[in-house]
Amino acid sequence: MTEHQSIYLALAAVLFAVGAFGALTRKNAIVVFLCVEIMLGAVNLVFIVFASANQSAEGLFMVMCVMAVAGAEAAVGLAIFVHLYRKTGTINIDKYNLLKW
């Protein structure tokens, strides 16, 4: 397991970087949302790698918490997108400048 650990960690880092890249570059709000989910998946992978290496249940419990938070985030985020779509007729995040000073 230890010799594969670096591969898993490198993979998680790359996945996180890809998700961050997508979240920063795409204009479609739902795709930005999916990129955040990719980042959460990469973090879950790191948690499970270290839980497996230390043989502890804490990392696994954290993964379950992250999944619950992702579900809550999906519910609230998509409700916000539906509301904004009704108000502005688009989900392009560049058009959302309501809070811009």
Binding site: V14, V18, G19, G22
Partner: peptide, 8 residues
């Protein structure tokens, strides 16, 4: 990584 890029 390929599926992540395809998502983007």
């Amino acid at each position: 990584i390929a599926t992540a890029f395809l998502v983007i």
